[in-house]
Lab assay of single mutants.
Amino acid sequence: MGFKLLSKLLVYLTASIMAIASPLAFSVDSSGEYPTVSEIPVGEVRLYQIADGVWSHIATQSFDGAVYPSNGLIVRDGDELLLIDTAWGAKNTAALLAEIEKQIGLPVTRAVSTHFHDDRVGGVDVLRAAGVATYASPSTRRLAEVEGNEIPTHSLEGLSSSGDAVRFGPVELFYPGAAHSTDNLIVYVPSASVLYGGCAIYELSRTSAGNVADADLAEWPTSIERIQQHYPEAQFVIPGHGLPGGLDLLKHTTNVVKAHTNRSVVE
C-alpha cells in the first residue's frame, strides 16, 4: 500500500471513529477524501466538511520552486461564519470567499490569524475590503508590521502568557507558548472536538522541520505538551499544512522538532 493511500485511509478511519463516538456532533463529509496538494491548482481553494458547521479550507501556493498546501478553518456561528487564517495570499483568499459563498452561503463576518507569517495573514486586506472584521493577538499584529505583512485590524486580548485561553464565538483560542513562531495560536472547536494546530503542528508525513527561522526550538516541545494537557479530548487535529489526523500529530511534531534540534547540535 502506497504512503499517500495509507495517509488518506488514516484520515478516513479517524473521521469514521469520530462519527461513531459522537453521532450528534459529527456529520463528516462523505463526498470524498481530504484534498491534497496535487489536486488543488494554485489560485483555487477546496472546502472539506469535518463536522456539522465545521470545515477546513485548503489552498496551495508556490514557494521556492515548489507547491505547498495550506489549511485553515471555518466555523459556523449562528447565521454567520468565523474564518481562521487566510488562504495564503490575496488571490487565494478572494477564491476562498467565493467558494464559501458557493458552498455554504453564509457571510464571513470575523477572521482570526493564528500567527504573523504570510500563509496566515496574506489576504487580510481582501477580507477587510469584503467587510470582514480581522483579528490577531497584539504580538501577531506587531510582528506582521515588522515583517511588512498585512496586519489584522483588531487585537485579541488575554493571550499574552503561555497557557492563556479565551473564548471567541464558537471557538476557544489558546496560546501554548512559542513553537513554530513566538505568537502562534491554537484554535479548538469544543462542539466538535476539532483542534486546529496551525503551523505549530505537523502532518504525519512530514519528517523535516522546514521553516524554523522564527521558531523557538527549545520551547516548542513544552508548548505541545500544554496543548495535549489542555485538549486531551480532541479527536480531529488539523495541521497548518497537509493531512489531518488525531492527537498523534502532536507527538510526531515533537519528535521531528527534537530530531532537528539534535542534528543542529551535532553539526
Results as ranks from 00 to 15, higher is better:
1 M>Y: 03
4 K>Y: 08
5 L>C: 15
5 L>I: 15
8 K>E: 14
12 Y>A: 13
13 L>R: 12
14 T>Y: 14
17 I>G: 13
21 A>W: 10
22 S>V: 13
23 P>Q: 14
25 A>I: 13
26 F>C: 11
27 S>V: 12
29 D>S: 10
34 Y>D: 07
36 T>W: 14
36 T>L: 10
37 V>H: 15
37 V>W: 14
37 V>K: 13
39 E>R: 12
41 P>V: 11
41 P>G: 15
43 G>E: 08
44 E>R: 13
50 I>Y: 04
50 I>C: 03
50 I>V: 12
52 D>G: 10
56 S>T: 15
57 H>I: 01
57 H>P: 02
62 S>Y: 06
64 D>P: 07
64 D>T: 09
64 D>Y: 14
66 A>L: 15
68 Y>T: 13
70 S>V: 04
71 N>H: 02
71 N>G: 02
71 N>L: 01
73 L>M: 15
74 I>A: 06
74 I>L: 08
75 V>Q: 03
78 G>Q: 09
78 G>R: 10
80 E>V: 09
81 L>A: 05
83 L>H: 00
91 K>D: 15
91 K>A: 15
92 N>W: 01
93 T>Y: 00
94 A>P: 04
94 A>R: 14
95 A>M: 13
95 A>P: 03
97 L>G: 01
100 I>L: 07
100 I>Q: 04
103 Q>K: 15
104 I>Y: 02
106 L>G: 05
111 A>H: 06
113 S>N: 06
114 T>K: 04
117 H>M: 00
118 D>Q: 08
118 D>Y: 06
119 D>L: 01
120 R>G: 04
124 V>F: 05
124 V>R: 01
127 L>Q: 00
128 R>V: 10
129 A>G: 11
132 V>G: 01
132 V>W: 01
137 S>W: 02
138 P>K: 09
139 S>G: 10
139 S>P: 09
139 S>Y: 11
142 R>F: 13
142 R>Y: 12
143 L>W: 06
149 N>E: 08
149 N>C: 06
150 E>M: 03
151 I>W: 05
151 I>A: 06
152 P>E: 00
153 T>D: 11
155 S>C: 06
156 L>I: 10
156 L>A: 03
158 G>D: 08
158 G>V: 04
159 L>N: 01
160 S>E: 14
161 S>H: 13
162 S>A: 15
164 D>S: 14
165 A>N: 12
173 L>M: 05
174 F>K: 00
175 Y>D: 03
175 Y>E: 00
176 P>Q: 01
185 L>M: 06
185 L>P: 03
191 S>I: 08
193 S>P: 04
193 S>W: 09
194 V>P: 03
196 Y>E: 01
197 G>I: 02
201 I>S: 05
203 E>P: 06
207 T>S: 12
210 G>D: 08
211 N>Y: 07
215 A>L: 04
216 D>S: 09
217 L>F: 07
219 E>W: 04
220 W>A: 00
220 W>K: 01
222 T>I: 11
223 S>L: 01
223 S>F: 05
224 I>N: 05
225 E>P: 03
226 R>C: 01
230 H>K: 15
231 Y>T: 01
232 P>F: 06
235 Q>P: 05
236 F>D: 06
236 F>W: 13
238 I>Y: 02
239 P>K: 01
242 G>H: 05
246 G>P: 06
247 L>M: 13
247 L>Q: 12
249 L>D: 01
250 L>W: 01
251 K>I: 11
252 H>I: 01
253 T>L: 00
255 N>K: 13
255 N>D: 12
256 V>K: 02
256 V>I: 12
257 V>N: 04
257 V>G: 01
258 K>F: 10
261 T>W: 11
263 R>G: 15
264 S>T: 12
264 S>M: 12
265 V>C: 05
